[in-house]
Amino acid sequence: MIIIGLDPSLTCTGWGIVAKSGSRLTHVANGQVKTDAKASLPERLVTLDRELSDVIARYQPSDSAVEEVFVNKNPQSTLKLGQARGVCLLALARAGLPVSEYAARLIKKAIVGTGTAEKAQIQAMLRVLLPGVQLAGADAADALAVAIAHANLSGTRSIFIR
Rank of each mutant, 00 (worst) to 15 (best):
I4L: 06
G5L: 00
G5V: 00
D7G: 03
P8H: 10
P8T: 10
L10V: 07
T11N: 11
T11A: 14
T11W: 05
C12M: 13
G14T: 00
G16M: 01
V18K: 00
A19D: 01
S21P: 00
G22N: 14
R24M: 07
L25Q: 08
L25G: 04
L25P: 14
L25M: 11
T26D: 12
T26E: 15
N30V: 01
N30S: 13
G31W: 08
Q32M: 14
K34M: 10
K34A: 10
K34G: 04
K34Y: 03
A39K: 15
S40M: 11
L41K: 08
L41C: 09
R44M: 12
D49K: 15
D54Y: 10
A57D: 15
P61F: 01
D63G: 14
A65Y: 02
V66M: 04
V66L: 11
E67L: 00
E67D: 02
F70P: 06
V71L: 12
N74T: 04
P75W: 13
Q76P: 00
Q76R: 14
S77N: 12
S77M: 07
L79T: 14
L81H: 10
L81G: 02
G82Q: 06
A84R: 01
A84V: 13
A84S: 13
R85A: 05
G86N: 12
C88S: 09
L89V: 11
L90Y: 10
A91F: 04
R94Q: 14
A95H: 04
A95V: 12
P98F: 08
V99W: 03
S100H: 10
S100E: 13
E101W: 00
Y102I: 07
Y102P: 00
A103D: 05
A103V: 10
I107M: 02
K109D: 02
A110W: 02
I111L: 13
V112Q: 05
G113N: 06
T114C: 11
G115I: 09
G115V: 11
T116G: 11
A117G: 04
A117L: 03
E118C: 09
A120T: 13
Q123G: 10
Q123S: 11
A124C: 05
M125G: 03
L126D: 05
L129F: 12
P131Y: 04
G132E: 09
G132Y: 11
V133C: 07
V133Q: 07
L135A: 02
A138W: 01
D139V: 03
A140R: 02
D142K: 05
A149F: 01
A151L: 06
L153S: 10
L153K: 03
L153N: 05
G155E: 15
G155H: 15
I159M: 12
I159R: 15
F160E: 09
F160A: 05
R162Q: 13
R162N: 12
R162M: 07
